[in-house]
Amino acid sequence: MAYYILNESLNRKILGKYPQVENTVYSCDSWEDPRFIEHESVSFEKVNFTPITAKAILAKKARLNDFMYPGGMGFSKKPLISGKLKSILEVTDKQGLQIYNSPVIYQGNEIEDYWVLNPYIFDMQAIDFKNVDVYLMEKYVHKIKKLDVLTYEDFIKQKAMIQEKGYPYSIYIENVHILENTTSDFLILENVEGGVMYLVSERLKQHLEAEGITGIEYQPSYISFNEWLAKGGLREQLYGKA
């Protein structure tokens, strides 16, 4: 089954304005408060309390979409989704995901039914490691060498060794292929391009499109972001020029 990375739309007609988010409001000290969603004890961790989230302020000419990627403090590697999209994702079999209310401010009004994803379990065992490239990275941008990784167990061993080295070294997976026997409709991966990937199956993609979910461009998981954005490439063919 094919899988697709959820990317924020680059089409100005869908966005209304790029970037959509022009500022962010915080109700706590975003650097120091241990309850804030970006704090190291909360971000990508399972917690037994409701974290403090940020409020994205949308540009006046932006459009409210079901899927947005504000970026910045409060939304680092975490998308912002509408209640409509939340209700769809909640009925998938994805484990290890907490979803927190994160209202947006739009044209002077606070829109309550928006939510930020905070995964704490990643679906790395779904990766077909025989068909991906795994690298030792320096400062997250420089490929030092390709690693001999053919199984999930190989990946775990290599990752543990690299973590012992510490910064500036990290492990990175490129051109993600998903195992053929995977049945989950919603996957979340780490140590990949962009840091974290949110992927949907062909089946869920079709459902989201039928439901009119807005703001998403579906990138096949096995191609890189640069390939996806190439002039005249697949993205442009499917969604038009950015």
Rank of each mutant, 00 (worst) to 15 (best):
K77I: 13
E112S: 15
G16H: 06
N118C: 08
Y120M: 08
S221R: 08
G194V: 04
L97P: 04
E180L: 13
K157G: 09
F186A: 04
S30V: 15
M161W: 13
V91F: 07
G74V: 01
V134H: 14
A62S: 13
F36E: 09
V104Q: 11
P70C: 14
N175M: 04
P168R: 09
M161R: 14
Y26M: 13
D123Q: 10
D93Q: 11
N175E: 14
I88L: 01
P34R: 02
K157I: 14
V132L: 00
P168C: 08
V91W: 05
E211F: 09
S9H: 00
E227S: 10
E174Q: 12
S27A: 13
E153Y: 13
G166R: 03
L117I: 12
F122S: 05
Q163I: 12
K157P: 11
F129V: 10
N11E: 13
T92Q: 10
L238C: 11
T92M: 09
E193L: 03
P70D: 12
E227Q: 08
A59L: 07
G96I: 10
I99D: 02
N23A: 11
S82Y: 01
L204I: 03
V47Y: 01
T151Y: 03
G72H: 04
E22T: 14
I37Y: 02
G194Q: 07
A242G: 11
M124H: 08
V196A: 10
Q163S: 10
L58I: 07
E236A: 01
C28E: 06
R235T: 00
I156E: 14
N101V: 05
G96R: 13
L199P: 02
T24I: 14
K55W: 01
H39L: 03
G212R: 01
K60S: 11
N11P: 10
I173L: 00
L238V: 04
L85M: 10
D128L: 05
Y120L: 10
Y239V: 03
Y169H: 11
N48W: 05
E22M: 06
E180I: 11
G16V: 05
D93A: 14
K17M: 08
E153D: 15
I5T: 08
L204Q: 07
K157Y: 13
Q206D: 08
P19E: 11
S82V: 00
G96C: 14
E217G: 03
Y140V: 15
Y100T: 01
N118S: 08
L199S: 03
D133R: 06
E32F: 12
M68Y: 07
V149D: 12
R235G: 03
V104M: 04
I105M: 15
